[in-house]
Amino acid sequence: MAKKWGQRIRNWMASNMDLPQDVIMDLPRITMIGQIHIYIENHRGLLAFTDKELRLLLKQGQLLIKGNSFVIKTILPEEILLEGKIDEVLYLTENPGGTK
């Protein structure tokens, strides 16, 4: 119940106080430059990394990036910059996050 209340308050704040949603609701912010770069903020750790696939843990669910010749240009606790040829970005969710 309490969690739901908190969720609702955050939702309300994001929509009515004009604050960025990723900050308020702990959602990932993903920036892509064409197919070659992807920059993900607010992730929760690396789950799997090969040169064809990158799986990241998010606060809710996971993020799966597919493509080929992946290289992690930088990795910081909450940020990651991936380089390569990106074909797909997929959200894997049990409980979908970021929905209203």
Binding site: V71, I72, T74, P77
Partner: peptide
Amino acid sequence: IERFINVLTRNGFFIWRVRR
């Protein structure tokens, strides 16, 4: 290895050019 990298980054190690 992924777990190892997570551990490193969380402990403030700066890593770049990760390649498999």
